[in-house]
């Protein structure tokens, strides 16, 4: 199962904001199909880490190497802008906490899903629409909503639409920033289950930032716990949650019910 080459190799990564540490000394490997949760309280540097990993901002130190489909393992710092942006809209996805930041709120659900296809050169309206309809069903949105704008959708539907919009190109790596944080508890379970199924079915590697350890328990193979911009503990999700070693992880785990 474990292939020889990790999909993503992160080494001694650091990001600073002036004198303030965003994150530093972050190293890990991510394998294809692996779901990695980054947990920590707000201000722990987990969102900074996510944005740096996705190369939305350049790291100040360290390297990120990704196993590109064509070129193989490549240091992202050496990748031309055009290729990086292509990566963002094809082989990678990025799901934002607030769906309004990740969707075009005033264009139809179909166009939201179809955008990546059109960006890679699909020029057949009927085909694009067919794929969009199919994805709408996969994320459990009634296909009659295909031509409706997400501004008329509930929070849960919007977040599921954002998933469809990202997964339509079948990316191998998807970054997610607190995707459940804005959802009502009553719709979280559906969203998480859907995410769990799709990620397993498509063998997508995921780096998911969350402060909710129950989300990590349900989705993640592995867990990274961050504090003050550094990794304090990392390991198998259930081992880390049931037998945490680091004082901070113990505190974090003991402060929540039923994680």
């Amino acid at each position: 199962m474990k292939p020889a080459i990790p999909l993503l190799q992160v080494k001694d990564l650091a990001k600073f904001y002036g004198n303030r540490v965003g994150c530093e000394q972050v190293s890990f490997n991510l394998y294809p199909g692996e779901v990695l949760c980054v947990a920590g309280e707000s201000g722990s540097g987990k969102s900074t880490l996510l944005n740096t990993l996705a190369f939305h901002q350049r790291p100040d130190a360290g390297s990120i190497r990704y196993d590109l489909r064509e070129e193989g393992v490549t240091d992202l710092a050496t990748l031309p802008d055009a290729r990086l942006r292509e990566l963002w809209r094809t082989d990678w996805g990025f799901v934002r906490q607030n769906p309004a930041d990740g969707l075009r709120m005033r264009v139809s659900a179909g166009a939201n899903i179809g955008e990546r296809l059109m960006a890679v050169g699909d020029r057949h309206y009927g085909d694009i629409r067919g794929v969009a309809k199919d994805w709408l069903q996969r994320v459990e949105i009634d296909e009659t909503r295909l031509d409706d704008a997400p501004s008329s959708f509930s929070g849960g539907m919007r977040q599921r639409l954002q998933i469809a919009r990202n997964l339509v190109t079948e990316p191998r790596l998807v970054f997610m920033d607190e995707p459940t944080a804005g959802l009502d508890v009553s719709v979280q379970a559906r969203f998480l289950d859907l995410l769990r199924r799709l990620v397993a079915e498509l063998r997508i590697a995921v780096i998911l930032v969350t402060h909710d350890l129950a989300v990590a328990r349900l989705l993640a193979h592995r867990l990274i716990v961050m504090r003050h911009g550094r990794i304090v503990e990392t390991g198998l999700t259930d081992q880390l949650l049931d037998d945490p070693q680091h004082p901070y992880t113990q505190l974090l785990v003991s402060s929540v019910l039923n994680a």
């Binding site: 199962m1 474990k2 559906r190 289950d193 193979h221 198998l236 081992q239």
Partner: peptide
Amino acid sequence: TPQQIIELRRTTISYVSQFLRVIPRV
């Protein structure tokens, strides 16, 4: 490593605990 343990659990070791950890909707 975590990957090795996940693989061992998939192929080699099963574990029946006292309580079922329920996955929503499954």
